[in-house]
């Protein structure tokens, strides 16, 4: 995949905000002293009067976003996933989730691909935290095209949305001309009958690559991109369970509470099949180059291939 164009989804986020500004005059962007990193700085430059830096105070930022939403504004509150979902969890739950306010949370630098900053900033728990909040939509886009579509869809819908973006440049898999995004609808990236690999975010590209390798070895793997963890596309998951009999989930998140757990929750009730989870195994990350960390934690096409083979 060396010749595939790449872009970090955090950049897609910043660009999408600018693209939406004219259409949504009430759209405002909040950040907590990370505009250069979350890429809301792109919006700040284009619309300085609609950008509000809250300083290093994420709890207040989420509350301010809630208050703005009660008065009809369309706030996008942005910071790293660690602080958006972690530090500000209870404010997101009580001030945004409980009153079901129209706040969009743009959480960047999710997962261990944060890299060198290490464990304190490598949030692998955010999906688990956010999906427990009633009425919260949780979206984990896989590439630039999907990320921009997700931001557009989030702006268009009423209610709280958590969007998870990455720091690392992600291969652009989708064609902007033909790509269709619908909240809650997974995408079959590749059909297959032997096993289903369900992936999200940065892991979709790895899953697609793994399926190609497996195909060359005579294993026909289906690949499903679940960009919306909540609400989950249960129909698509159940059909895959029925038709392929086994599922491997891949996510750049703890194996506790994320995509893998959501898939297990679904199939255990509706079509019990074996589910094998690939993710961060109940441990903290550490410093290192992002690409090396992903490999080390088994978040790679190579590891997906070997796990699939061990399951079959």
């Amino acid at each position: 995949m060396a010749d595939v164009k790449k872009k970090a989804t955090r950049e897609s986020y910043g660009e999408a905000l600018v693209e939406l500004a004219e259409q949504y005059p009430d759209l405002v962007v909040l950040d907590a002293d990370l505009a250069a990193a979350t890429k809301t700085g792109i919006f700040k430059k284009a619309y300085p009067d609609r950008f509000f830096d809250c300083g290093i105070a994420e709890e207040n930022m989420m509350g301010v976003a809630a208050g703005l939403a009660t008065a009809g504004m369309l706030p996008f509150a942005s910071t790293f996933a660690m602080f958006a979902a972690g530090r500000a969890y209870e404010i997101v739950r009580n001030s945004i989730g409980y009153p079901h306010l129209n706040v969009k949370i743009g959480a960047t630098h999710a997962g261990i691909s944060v890299g060198e900053d290490g464990a304190t900033h490598q949030c692998c728990e955010d999906i688990a935290l956010m999906r427990t909040i009633p009425g919260m939509t949780v979206i984990v886009p896989s590439d630039d095209v999907e990320a921009k579509a997700a931001v557009r869809a989030a702006a268009a819908m009423e209610g709280p949305v958590y969007m998870r973006f990455g720091r690392l440049a992600a291969p652009i898999l989708n064609d902007p001309e033909t790509y269709q995004f619908e909240i809650g609808k997974g995408i079959t990236m590749r059909d297959g009958k032997d096993i289903t690999i369900v992936a999200s975010g940065l892991m979709v590209a790895e899953a697609v690559q793994a399926a190609e390798t497996l195909a060359a070895e005579g294993i026909d793997a289906r690949v499903i991109n679940i960009h919306t963890i909540k609400p989950l596309d249960e129909e698509l998951i159940v059909r895959a369970a029925k038709e392929t009999g086994r599922i491997v989930t891949v996510e750049e998140h703890s194996i506790i509470g994320g995509l893998g757990s959501a898939v297990c929750d679904c199939v255990s009730a509706k079509c019990p099949v074996q589910v094998t989870k690939i993710g961060v195994n109940d441990e903290f990350g550490h410093s290192g180059p992002a690409v090396d960390l992903l490999k080390q934690f088994g978040l790679s096409a190579e590891n997906i291939v070997s796990v699939v083979k061990s399951v079959l």
Binding site: G63, A71, M73, N94
Partner: peptide
């Protein structure tokens, strides 16, 4: 006007309402 009760949170929401008032010239 706002769900509240987990202490310390209402004042932030009030800030957001006040900011919205400024932005909307209300």
């Amino acid at each position: 006007d706002m769900s509240s009760g987990s202490l310390g949170q209402g004042i932030s929401a009030a800030c957001g309402m006040a900011l919205a008032g400024k932005l909307k010239a209300a």
